[in-house]
């Protein structure tokens, strides 16, 4: 029984945590991919930047959380989302829009986004240094230990407050996005632009507004993902390229242009990662005793240091087997 609790802690909870983070990143990437037609390489650093904006606000008003009984960083997150959205729109105006208007190839846009990623990285590191930070400035991380009603389970299920907040926020964000995209006028305009930009424009959709809204959604979700990830572990300024690959893999697995696909892809990649590095020998230990097997002590599919290979091979597999992704996305 204890082994099962260990499995829940190590795989179900951490897989869901990392899956939610990937899902929120992948929604932004997939929207930008389908509306602006390029792979946004600066998304990882947009997440880091958003998290640092939160850190800045938290350091400014360390007391704010006590009033509502939540971590201050979580209370400050909506403000950081607004700031980061403005930043994202500004970056678009300064660096992507001129290229878009010059009608360059999508690859040039990808290069421009790498330029932006390096600039964001540089700015964040100049102002905040290169070491990792803790987002809990004036408060402590609360850890819940849930006891199980069975006698055999002496271990407890461990879940932290940021993780609960992350799950709640992810669900709320995905539901809200669903209603926005299917019910509101603007959301429908976004979907139309993503399906066929030229057709959308001649039928009177203001594509400029659509682009702006895309950046706002992407910026908000990136901030939330960055902040909640940093609340759960620590705020690292060198996240960018490490997190970019799983996010792209998630977006492509789900099918480019499908926000729901991105959510599915995020959880697929997240659980695949945690399942691959999980040590199966622990789960098999009771069986080992019962049947007197001789199992090696480590039965992980992939050593932890090679975790990055998991999203890559998922990506390769999906590109070979079904390049459109699970939900039939666009392959342009």
């Amino acid at each position: 029984m204890n082994e099962l609790v260990f499995f829940i802690n190590k795989v179900l909870i951490s897989g869901a945590v990392i899956g939610s983070i990937y899902a929120m990143g992948a929604i932004g990437v997939t929207l930008i991919f389908s509306i602006l037609r390029f792979a946004h390489f600066a998304h990882g650093d947009l997440m880091t930047t958003g998290a640092f904006v939160t850190l800045f606000l938290t350091a400014m008003f360390p007391e704010a959380g006590h009033a509502v009984g939540l971590p201050t960083a979580f209370v400050m997150m909506p403000f950081a989302m607004v700031i980061t959205s403005f930043l994202a729109i500004g970056l678009d105006k300064a660096f992507y829009k001129p290229l878009r208007e010059a009608n360059v190839k999508p690859v040039v846009m990808v290069m421009a986004s790498i330029g932006v990623t390096l600039m964001l990285q540089g700015v964040v590191r100049i102002f905040f240094g290169t070491s990792s930070r803790n987002l809990f400035v004036d408060d402590r991380k609360e850890i819940f230990r849930l006891e199980l009603p069975w006698e055999l389970a002496s271990r407890k299920i461990i879940i932290t407050e940021p993780q609960v907040l992350l799950f709640v926020f992810t669900i709320v964000a995905v539901v809200a996005l669903h209603y926005f995209l299917t019910r509101s006028r603007l959301g429908k305009a976004m979907r139309a632009t993503s399906d066929n930009a030229d057709l959308a424009r001649i039928s009177g959709i203001n594509t400029k507004t659509v682009v702006t809204v895309t950046w706002v959604i992407a910026g908000c979700l990136a901030t939330a993902a960055g902040t909640l990830l940093s609340l759960d572990v620590a705020l690292k300024p060198d996240l960018s390229f490490q997190i970019l690959l799983p996010i792209f893999a998630a977006a492509i697995v789900g099918g480019v242009g499908h926000p729901y696909g991105a959510v599915i892809g995020g959880f697929v990649v997240g659980f695949a990662e945690t399942l691959a590095v999980f040590n199966w020998a622990i789960l098999l230990r009771p069986l080992e005793k019962a049947y007197e097997w001789d199992l090696p002590s480590n039965l992980a599919l992939v050593p932890t240091e090679y975790k990055i290979t998991v999203p890559f091979f998922i990506l390769i597999a999906i590109l070979v087997l079904k390049p459109t992704g699970i939900l039939k996305g666009q392959v342009l």
């Binding site: 999508p106 390229f241 690959l245 492509i252 090679y306 990055i308 890559f312 390049p323």
Partner: peptide, 17 residues
Amino acid sequence: GLRSDYLAIATLGISEI
């Protein structure tokens, strides 16, 4: 054979690997 951005993502991944 796929769109050009995929090559960028894949090469980024293979270099990290």
